[in-house]
Design a protein around this nucleic acid. Structure first.
Lengths: 254, 254
DNA sequence: TGCTGTGAATCGCTTCACAGCC
DNA sequence: GGCTGTGAAGCGATTCACAGCA
């Protein structure tokens, strides 16, 4: 137990702010779309609009990576795609295991965006013996008993937990003991992990509760400002920050 | 219930920081677990540990809601559960529609945590005519053509988008035009919405990319500190901030 | 001229440390 | 003595505004 204040300046090593790291994937997606349309260059203004952030923030973000733009012109799309991919570590392939092949786990396994960029589903693992061998998304499900062997054989360092809440902590411990150092947790539980292991979580009901809070507030205000009333087609605004991204806390730092 | 409620929330629910709102669901979950175990009171220290945050932050968070604790003692569990639920708007029922009943949409529909607290799946909507009438999680899927009618008939103000990226913006516009003012977006796209509509997004591949960044960094450092090597059973640390929660940007404000 | 890159100002959240009350 | 509630300090992220360069 870490009682002794292990004060670590959070983001040590390379000085890219967490908030910036969390936005890089957004930029990358926007850039990839531009690349597919063979657009050669973009201005910070255009790219920011496509990524749903403001341009000053984007320029500041990029300034942490280096000086990849050209004054008076903008950014070379292909070059930026490469630089960001490299920065995010997507130029290599990351084998990933998914543990817990229920509804959600199966949906994740089938999710296309997985393989698309740098990630590969190396194995599916479930505790139900009846699932063993059954293929999901073309990959045979393996039993939890073999978890350690699977992790080691495939050199997996990223694990996805999609088990029920009750099983998550134990699965987490086995993953970590077997060598996994990054975990994406879909189970509605707080995971305890040793230093050096990163955890990110995705939780539907938390997101809904946050929306409900704001929804309730809207209902309470009701017609404070003059406009409002007709949300339909009219003015549209690029949402400044959608959801859990622009976030900061991100990962538990090593 | 009701121990020290001598005070009224002097600071009416105006200025609750987004970061605090994003943590309330976490506290609520921890408190609910305590409640089920019939624990009558908790200290900020204990509750903070259960929620995976630090105790000063928790106390500060609660101070925005009012003075619900008792000095020298702690917080009354039942009373706090009620206060936080009320603050989050969970004392009322929120009908929710899910649009896009593919793998993910179906998994969401089946997700238990949905109904558990304040939310009810009012309808499932899909563009595929072949899906129409087919029950998923006991609820018959309806066709997109009837989207507007469904929203209005059920008084839905929260929508979940689980469609492919290409369809998301259009679905979003129809939801908003029909009266939805909060959207949870699972499609990997930036949604444009009018002022007054909140959007939160959940994106698997973004989370993975953020993990990959840190993973790559770890591989680069390698052997900076002496220990390492045996991540197994030893020291375990309550992750300070797991994933997209402790976040701030949250919702696009009205 | 136009757009990037960045110091400086600002904002908001977190953390500290202790006063206040049980 | 113990634990909450909170002013104040600290810190990171955002935003501003403009210098610098193609």
């Amino acid at each position: 137990m870490a009682t002794g204040r292990t004060h670590r300046p959070a983001t040590r090593s390379r000085g890219i702010p967490e908030a910036t790291v969390a936005r890089l994937p957004l930029y990358l997606r926007a850039l990839t779309a531009l690349s597919e349309r063979s657009v050669p260059t973009v201005s910070s203004e255009e790219l920011a609009a496509a990524a749903g952030v403001n341009s000053a923030k984007l320029r500041k973000d990029f300034s942490y990576l280096g000086s990849y733009g050209t004054r008076g012109v903008g950014y070379d799309v292909e070059y930026l795609v490469y630089q960001i991919s490299r920065e995010l570590g997507l130029t290599q392939d990351w084998p990933v295991v998914i543990v817990g092949i229920g509804n959600l786990g199966a949906a994740l396994a089938n999710y296309g965006g997985f393989a698309s960029r740098g990630f590969r589903v190396a194995a599916l693992i479930d505790a139900d013996p009846a699932m063993a061998g059954k293929p999901v998304a073309g990959i045979p499900v393996q039993h939890t008993d073999d978890l350690e062997k699977i992790i080691e054989d495939n050199g997996v360092s990223i694990g996805v937990i999609a088990t029920p809440a009750g099983a998550a902590q134990q699965v987490c411990e086995r993953l970590v003991a077997a060598g996994v150092t990054s975990i994406l947790n879909f189970a509605p539980t707080v995971l305890s992990v040793p230093d050096g292991v990163d955890v990110r979580k995705v939780d539907l009901s938390i997101e809904l509760q946050i929306l409900a809070f704001h929804e309730q507030r809207k209902a309470g205000e009701e017609s404070a400002s003059g406009d409002g009333a007709h949300p339909a087609a009219a003015a549209r605004k690029e949402s400044a920050d959608q959801g859990p991204d622009g976030d900061v806390p991100a990962v538990m730092p090593a």
